[in-house]
């Protein structure tokens, strides 16, 4: 799972709903690295994560994995990433084991029980989704990370709804993932122990409000 290639972004500029979210943003992430995105609401943390996942295309600039732009081979990029968004994708009528088996199966992996144990939901493995609490649903969504190996983890505020113990489980999983050569990009509002990780403050790349030839002239 360790791949020497760098995960890089150059000169990124992103537009959402006609509004400039950030410009001239660069980042670099090597194997084993961890990038924590911080910044006020609306500064583009989720947008940047969706850009990295390939759901969004930047108006300018490129994101590359080992020098190869994402647009070249989107399928390969999707095969190497896990994305955890705000929604937990839990079906009310399926049990935790079935949900996890489905998502792991999509990636041809089978470590379901280990993943359930990693996030302490092996005890409720056979409970249908409709009975799960928010924290349990979130832990089930995070369990997908452990169920199928993928070098790049993109976590959008993973700690929302988690109690102290679960946050520790997440930190453990991230540490194990990074030790194995994987890399993580996450956005968070609470401080998460990510030893040796870098912080990217998106406020530094906010659009400049100059009026003349600035961001939104003569539209």
């Amino acid at each position: 799972m360790t791949s020497p290639q760098l995960f890089t972004g150059q000169d990124l500029l992103c537009l959402r709903g006609g509004r400039l979210v950030f410009q001239d943003l660069d980042f670099q992430l090597a194997a084993g690295g961890c990038l924590t995105l911080v910044g006020p609401n609306g500064s583009g943390k989720s947008t940047l994560l969706r850009l990295m996942a390939g759901l969004l295309k930047p108006l300018r600039g490129t994101i590359a994995w080992g020098g190869v732009a994402l647009g070249q081979d989107p399928e390969a990029h999707r095969a190497r990433l896990h994305y955890v968004g705000h929604l937990d994708a839990v079906k009310a009528s399926f049990t935790c084991r079935e949900i996890l088996a489905f998502w792991a199966g999509l990636r041809g992996a089978g470590g379901v029980d280990a993943a359930l144990a990693a996030f302490a939901i092996d005890t409720i493995a056979d409970v249908p989704g409709r009975f799960l609490s928010a924290g349990q649903r979130r832990r089930l969504s995070l369990a997908r990370l452990a169920a199928a190996p993928a070098p790049l983890w993109l976590l959008d505020e993973p700690t929302v709804g988690l109690d102290r113990a679960s946050v520790a489980l997440l930190e453990g999983a991230i540490a194990r993932h990074r030790a194995g050569g994987g890399r993580v990009v996450l956005s968070t509002h609470i401080d998460l122990a990510t030893p040796g990780g870098e912080v990217l403050d998106l406020a530094a790349f906010a659009p400049v409000e100059d009026d003349q030839d600035g961001a939104e002239d003569a539209a």
Binding site: L55, L81, Y83, G85, A89, K91, W103, L106, R107
Partner: peptide, 15 residues
């Protein structure tokens, strides 16, 4: 699937 986020994960799966 759109409302509970599954569709987004499906679009990000190798499929």
């Amino acid at each position: 699937d759109f409302e509970d986020g599954s569709l987004e994960l499906l679009l990000l799966s190798p499929l």
